[in-house]
Design a binder for these strands. Structure first.
Lengths: 215, 215
DNA sequence: GGCCGTCCTTGATATAGGTCAAGGTGGATG
DNA sequence: CATCCACCTTGACCTATATCAAGGACGGCC
C-alpha cells in the first residue's frame, strides 16, 4: 500500500498515514501553500513545477510510484504538484512525522539519502537545461525514463511515456514544436519508433547514449 | 573557525575536523571521486560544476563562508568543486561523521534542513535556466547575490561579485558576450553601476526585481 | 458513425542569443 | 615604466530554436 516504505517503517508510521487519491490534472498542492504534509506516490504519475508571473512553466521533476513528495520545503512548498494521471498517494502530516523522527533516526537517515539523490538529479537537470542542445535534451530525457523504468521493474522497451508534449517541453526548457520535430528526427533516423499513445520503442539505445552526452 | 557550526556541534565534531586551504583555481574534488569528506566553507568562494565530454560547463552553484559542501553524494561526488579565490574549509571524514550522527540526531536534522534548502534553490535555478531570458537571468543572479550578502551580513551595496564573466555565463546558461552585453544594458539604463574590479553598485533594485520576474 | 476537443505534426518565418573577430582595460611583473 | 596577460567589451553576422499558422490523428460522446 505505501510503496517506498519497509515493513518496520510502515509499522511506525501507520498511525499517522492516510491515503488520498487525485484525478488527472488535479492539484495536490501549490507553490507557497503551507507545507503541512509529505507524500509518497503509491501509483500514477505526478508533475512538479514552478511558474513565472506570465505563465511560463518549468517542470522540475516527474514522480512515479515509490517516489517521495514534499522534501523541498521549509514552511511552505517550493513548487506545485499536480497529478498527470489518476494518482494515489499516502500522506503524513509533517509535524507528526517530525515528532516520530525524534525516536526513529533510521527514517531520518533515509530522508537524507533521498534528498541527496534528488539533489544529484537536480544538478544533472541544470546541466541539461543550461548546456545541452534540443537533441541532447530529448535523448537524455528518453534515457532517464528508460533507467527509471528499469529501476522500478517496468518495461523498458516499449517504454511508457505518460506525459504529453507540453509536459516534456516544459521539463526540458523547449517548446512543444521542438520536442515534436526532434522526436520526428529520431524516428526518421531509426533511433526510436512510436508504438502508440504514450509508448515509445527504443530502437537504438547506444545512439541515444551518444547523443545525450554530446556526440 | 568552523563557520556554520554551533558551539555544541563544534564540541562533538572537533575530534574529526581538520582544516584545509586551497588557492584560487585549485580543485577541491572532482565529479566521480569517491566521496570521502564533507566540507564547510570558512572563508572564500567556491564554484560547483558539471562538465560535458566536449568541455561545456554548467556551474550548479557558488558557495561562500558558512555554506556546506558535499551533500549531493552517494558514494561519489555528483559534481566538481573548485576554489574561486583563496579558500579555507573545515573538513569531516564522511564515515566518521556518519558514525557520530548515530548518537547526535540534532546534527542529522540540521543536514536535512540544509539539503532541503539546496533543493529549493536548485528548483529556482531550473526555472531560471529553462524559462528565463538573458535579462531575467542576469537580474535574478544579481538579486541572488544581494540576498546572499544580506543574509551573511556583508555589504549589499556596493555588492561584491567575486566570480568572473565566464563563471557567471556558465552558471546562467549563457555566453560571456551575452553576460557582458546585458550588464552593459543595465548600466546604460541606470540599473547598476560598475564600481571597480568585482564590485557592483545596485542603483535600482526595484527595477531589477521587476525584470527578474519577467516584467 | 459523425462531431468535437485535445493533442500532435509540419511548414514558414522571426529572433534571442551564440559565434567569430577585434580591440580595450587594468593589475601584476620584470 | 613598459610589457604582458587575463579578462572584458563591442561589433558583425549566424543559427538553433521560438513563434505563428495550418492542418491531421485519435478518442470520447451524442
Amino acid at each position: 500500500m505505501c510503496a517506498a516504505l519497509t515493513e518496520e517503517e510502515l509499522e511506525r508510521l501507520r498511525v499517522i498515514i492516510s491515503s488520498v487519491r487525485f484525478g488527472a490534472r488535479q492539484t495536490i498542492f501549490q507553490e507557497g501553500d503551507p507545507a503541512t504534509h509529505l507524500f509518497n506516490v503509491v501509483d500514477g504519475a505526478v508533475r512538479l513545477y514552478k511558474l513565472l508571473a506570465d505563465g511560463r512553466r518549468q517542470i522540475t521533476g516527474f514522480l512515479f510510484s515509490g517516489d517521495f513528495l514534499g522534501l523541498a520545503m521549509n514552511d511552505s512548498y517550493a513548487y506545485s504538484a499536480e497529478a498527470i494521471s489518476e494518482v494515489s498517494l499516502c500522506r503524513f502530516p509533517r509535524l507528526k512525522l517530525e515528532a516520530l523522527l525524534e525516536e526513529f533516526p533510521k527514517m531520518e537517515k533515509r530522508l537524507l539519502g533521498i534528498a541527496s539523490n534528488e539533489l544529484a538529479a537536480a544538478q544533472d537537470q541544470m546541466l541539461l537545461l543550461g548546456r545541452k542542445t534540443a537533441r541532447e535534451k530529448i535523448a537524455s530525457f528518453l534515457l532517464l525514463l528508460v533507467r527509471n523504468a528499469a529501476h522500478r521493474g517496468r518495461s523498458e522497451n516499449p517504454l511508457a511515456v505518460p506525459m504529453n508534449r507540453t509536459d516534456i517541453a516544459d521539463y526540458l526548457g523547449l517548446t512543444i514544436e521542438t520536442v515534436s520535430r526532434t522526436l520526428t528526427g529520431f524516428r526518421n533516423a531509426g533511433i526510436v519508433a512510436m508504438v502508440e499513445n504514450g509508448r515509445v520503442s527504443i530502437e537504438n539505445r547506444e545512439e541515444l547514449e551518444v547523443i545525450a552526452e554530446g556526440g
